[in-house]
């Protein structure tokens, strides 16, 4: 049984939404991921698509759900049988980031407003291990938790029309990487040469929910070197298996 009280709701005629309490926490994340893994290993009678977010899982069926109550009972049984019995393997990915002013367009503004040295912003940002809650918003955009309070900074009132691919930013209590060029309202503090959504790979995004990310500060020269290696396919992101 779960330590959380879960709600099961029909969401259209093809989907069921499972919801945890309205909080963002690593305990909820662990519970969501255990359930998700149990569902992914369950032998459904038809093809289903499973997605998760901070405190929810959406199961979408290929055909209209005939009897929502029976289906919910099935889903509940999957959870009871498997919860906590599985060991979820997750990885810690070391992501090189160049915090040069050239990329960190808003570093000076954050330093000024939050009364903190740029060197300290860099050290706080790169000394934290961030859990990946889920992927959404854009292909390969990781929702990360755990940003240090001292780095929190409101989104820009007027978003930039163009934020470059690989830009690392801060928006309120979140930090993240733009996987592709897009408009964006986050404050930019650096840039990574790493590709977060690569169509040439069988798994276009290397990270998954439950993994962890740590940023590693690199120089402008190293940024160029890694960019070349990423482009010719010779760069391997440093990673290690973690237990929790």
């Amino acid at each position: 049984m779960s330590e959380f009280e879960l709600q099961y709701k029909p969401f259209g005629k093809y989907s069921i939404l499972i919801e945890w309490p309205q909080v963002i926490s690593e305990d909820v994340l662990k519970s969501v991921l255990s359930y998700k893994e149990a569902l992914e290993n369950f032998d459904f009678k038809q093809k289903v698509y499973i997605k998760s977010a901070y405190n929810s899982i959406l199961i979408t069926y290929n055909i209209i759900i005939n009897n929502i109550y029976d289906e919910v009972l099935t889903l509940k049984s999957v959870f009871n049988d498997n919860f906590d019995s599985k060991y979820i393997k997750s990885k810690l990915w070391m992501i090189p980031v160049c915090y040069d002013i050239e990329f960190g367009l808003d570093l000076e503004e954050i330093a000024k407003q939050n009364n903190i040295a740029i060197s300290e912003i860099i050290s706080l940002h790169s000394n934290t291990i961030y859990p990946v809650y889920f992927i959404g918003f854009l292909p390969g955009f990781l929702y990360l938790g755990g940003l240090d309070n001292r780095l929190q900074f409101p989104r820009k009132i007027t978003p930039r029309l163009k934020v470059e691919k690989g830009s690392v930013g801060i928006g309120n209590s979140q930090t993240g990487i733009y996987p592709n060029e897009s408009p964006g309202g986050w404050n930019l503090i650096g840039k990574t040469p790493i590709n977060f959504f690569d169509l040439t790979k069988e798994q276009p995004c290397f990270a998954k929910s439950g993994d962890k990310i740590q940023f590693v500060a690199i120089s402008r020269v190293e940024y160029n070197e890694i960019t070349v290696q990423v482009d010719n396919g010779s760069f391997n992101i440093e990673s290690k298996v973690t237990n929790d």
Binding site: G12, S15, S52, A53, S56, I57, L58, G136
Partner: peptide, 10 residues
């Protein structure tokens, strides 16, 4: 507002 959650067409 809710905590960012799942949506779909429709």
């Amino acid at each position: 507002e809710i905590i960012t959650s799942l949506v779909m067409p429709g």
